[in-house]
Design a binder for these strands. Structure first.
Lengths: 262, 262
DNA sequence: CAGTGGTCTAGACCACTCC
DNA sequence: GAGTGGTCTAGACCACTGT
């Protein structure tokens, strides 16, 4: 883009995501993915973009900030922005939901609940889910598959009000987040911790691996838009099935290296 | 804060990081870490903060955007921001540099170069480092320790102009990024891919583990402020020594789940 | 030096949450 | 309906990069 007639690129993007800057960002993302500036190429100046899209410089900067956070472009005083990569960026829902991630890859996701328990929360769970001393939780143990192959074991711990909704979902439902969404449970923020774990008896049985076999572990704690904890989950992936990627920069890191918990 | 006399909090922060919004952000971070709003508590309104700090609402919003990116607070229309966590946020340099990370934990970092090679770049390296078809690279294989214990093996591949600087650093230097920094090589952006790998002969020898033992792998590609690739590295950690954490949200994810490369 | 992005301000309107 | 954050505008000045 930035070659068309005038302020049409935004309108041309059709029923965009509402906010102006999001539509501009989407348009720029497309242009970058299409290689219009090349890898390592320079973007037009903010002022030029503002004129092209017919918006103010502030709006352009909001759009560019989004691209930057995604690691698509650099940003420094004195020079035009430079294209860093053309990687397709994953949406938050593709991250939180195994199902929507798998579908976006053209794979056939599957899931089967192995076990549901209601029990008192451990100290760790009380802290993560902000529960009182006598709080209870619902644990859901579930095997996830990709085109029939077992790939991951998910242990999700929910506060009762969420867990009771989850418990009503059929055991072989492909997605849990979608029915939850329909009932007003929205995932908005998540913290992830990634390391390595050894398969226990459940993992070995559900994944078909040896006991104590190494697995890639992702622990996650999700909250809704109001900041209320929704879930505290531990997922264990078969090696070679997934990798996690993160971008970060001087201007703001979301990634952290930590000493492993004892 | 937000209880002191007037617009003194910013001035009181002393020789802050230059930009006004950074000083405001740092002050708010401190206040949150000190538990002034509690976990799950509500922040003052933007307007109140603007009045308190004696700055415009735009500046306050810039500061809050930083806190949000770090996963410290939520953000939604209609309600005050809510404190999500009080986690100390790691700076970018603590992420790129094993040395500065270890020091911030009070551990004693160490490093020893095992081997340096100059050789033609592989196709993958040419792409990552944006080198021509006949490009060469310098590979540095290095063992990293924490208080004497071997913890990680680092395989860094540099373009010649960086590699030649690295090759001049003493084999037992604790830090490589610090001397590079002094010579004007600045790391500004990085992409990380985290998964699992099996120890090869070098890993087993340097870490004292078995051949094919499972290790946590972090592949990284770093660029300088102008977007020029500086490094393409593969680090392998002993299990139980580190974990990686990431925050992400509906408003912008830097984290991605990917199918493992073949 | 000209060009460019970084920072800051002031004001406006809207969409949403919660009482 | 009052309060709050989200979006957008217009303009200003500064710090830095490159020629």
């Amino acid at each position: 883009m930035v070659t068309g007639s005038e302020a049409d690129a935004v309108a041309g993007a059709g029923a965009g995501a509402g906010a102006l800057y999001r539509r501009v960002a989407a348009d720029l993302r497309e242009a970058i993915a299409a290689g219009e500036y090349g890898s390592g190429g320079r973007l037009p100046a903010e002022q030029a973009l503002a004129a092209h899209y017919g918006v103010s410089r502030g709006t352009i900067r909001q759009a560019l900030a989004a691209l930057r956070a995604n690691g698509l472009v650099t940003s420094r005083r004195g020079t035009r922005r430079v294209v860093l990569g053309t990687t397709r960026v994953q949406s938050f829902s593709e991250l939180v939901s195994f199902t929507s991630w798998a579908r976006s890859l053209g794979e056939e996701p599957g899931g089967r609940v192995d076990r549901i328990e209601r029990r008192p929360a451990t100290a760790y769970e009380r802290e993560q889910l902000r529960l009182p001393a006598d709080g209870e939780v619902i644990l859901v143990l579930r095997a996830r598959t990709l085109s029939g192959q077992p790939v991951m074991v998910e242990r999700s711990v929910y506060p009762l009000w969420v867990g009771e909704l989850v418990a009503r979902i059929p055991a072989d439902a492909v997605s849990h987040t979608e029915p939850l969404q329909e009932q007003g449970v929205v995932f908005a923020d998540a913290d992830h911790t990634i390391d390595l774990a050894a398969a226990d008896a459940d993992d070995a049985r559900l994944l078909g691996c040896d006991l104590a076999a190494p697995l890639l572990r992702e622990r996650r704690r999700s909250t809704d838009p109001s900041g209320a904890p929704l879930e505290c989950s531990e997922d264990r992936y078969m090696p070679g099935t997934v990798a996690f990627t993160v971008h970060n920069s001087l201007a703001g890191s979301a990634l952290t290296r930590r000493q492993a918990a004892p």
